Simulated scan of single mutants.
Amino acid sequence: MSKPTIFAHRGASAVQFENTMRAFEKALDQGADGIELDVQVTEDGVPIVIHDADLVRLAGVRQMIASLTSAEIANIRVGKKYMRLVNGHRIPTLLGAVAFCERHHLALNVELKETVSQRPEFVEKIVGSVSYLDHIHISSFDYHLLEKVKEVNASMETGYLLRKNSVDWDVLEQYLSADGFHIHKKLLREPYLQSLIRTGKKIRVYGMTGKEAIVASSPSYIAGWITDFPDRFRGSKE
């Protein structure tokens, strides 16, 4: 029986700044099977790897991603406050992150964020840039984006990120464009769990620390754990 795939959430973000190449490199060092990352789209349509739609939290800049070109983004550094000027990180492009995953044979979970919802015409570009990877799926809280992904490439695997009150849990089967469901670990309980299992689709769980009892003997219905601490899951993969 195969073990769940261990995805490093925004890279090894417990020890390196989130969604940076350094975080992805550390995830590789810590034994992650794959990378989970977030994608926003710049003003000139370049997919970049960053969680927020604005730069306030990550770069201390009061600018929206959608209002900046990729050239302008390239000059911005993200990182911890007071450290950005001397030890800031470049914001990766999706193409750069994909190349890293291909080079190191890592699985990739691409989460589409707000700026993609606002400009769904760029889904085709994003799908095209990741489709040659062997182990790739695209996830989002926005189900309409997953429908768009399937329109572009019916064989591209998708994962629908669920919130407690975002769906009717009794009819999860109706989400035909979702090949799997991603949930926070708080929803890894009834009545949600049986509804998920009944679909027969892949279940991936985020918010995992590696200290949960369930990790020691992962149930067969779990396809993946998404965690800031991939090193804590090494024993569960043996």
Rank of each mutant, 00 (worst) to 15 (best):
L58V: 04
A12S: 15
E43S: 08
L55A: 01
S129D: 12
K201V: 06
G88S: 01
T69A: 12
I35Y: 07
L145V: 02
Y206A: 07
R163K: 15
V127I: 13
M156P: 12
A14R: 14
G11C: 02
V215M: 01
S139P: 06
G45S: 04
R198H: 14
E190C: 03
A223N: 09
K201T: 02
E114G: 00
N165P: 00
S70H: 14
E212T: 09
E72H: 08
E114C: 00
P120C: 07
C101K: 02
L55E: 01
K81V: 01
D170C: 10
D33V: 04
V15E: 05
L37K: 01
Y160R: 04
L58D: 11
Q194F: 05
F233I: 15
V15S: 11
L85P: 00
D33M: 11
L196C: 13
A213G: 13
T227V: 12
V123W: 06
Q30P: 01
H89S: 05
K80P: 08
P92Q: 03
P191G: 09
R77S: 06
S155I: 01
L188T: 09
R62H: 07
R103Y: 09
G60L: 05
H137G: 07
V98Y: 13
S131T: 14
K202I: 08
D44Q: 06
S220K: 10
K3R: 13
D44S: 02
D52Y: 02
D142V: 08
G60K: 08
A8V: 04
T5I: 15
S13V: 10
G207Y: 11
G45H: 02
E157A: 15
L58S: 09
N153Q: 12
I197C: 10
S131I: 12
I50A: 00
Q194E: 14
I35H: 03
I226C: 07
M83L: 13
T115Q: 10
N153I: 04
S140L: 03
F122N: 05
Y82E: 13
H9Q: 10
F100T: 08
E121F: 06
A97H: 07
Y192L: 09
D142T: 02
M1D: 09
D179N: 14
S129I: 00
I76W: 03
V46T: 10
K201S: 02
V149I: 10
L176E: 06
K211C: 04
N19E: 01
I65A: 05
G96I: 05
V110W: 03
E102K: 14
Y206P: 08
K202S: 14
K237A: 03
P4S: 04
Q118M: 13
E102A: 14
V127P: 13
T209Q: 12
D44P: 07
R22W: 00
D170P: 00
R234H: 11
E173A: 11
Q30D: 15
Y221Q: 09
K148A: 08
Q174E: 13
V130P: 07
R90T: 09
F17N: 02
R119W: 05
N19D: 05
W225L: 02
G11N: 03
H144V: 10
E147G: 02
E157M: 06
V98K: 14
D134W: 04
Y221I: 14
V149F: 10
I91T: 09
F233P: 11
S140A: 09
R189M: 10
L106I: 02
I197Y: 08
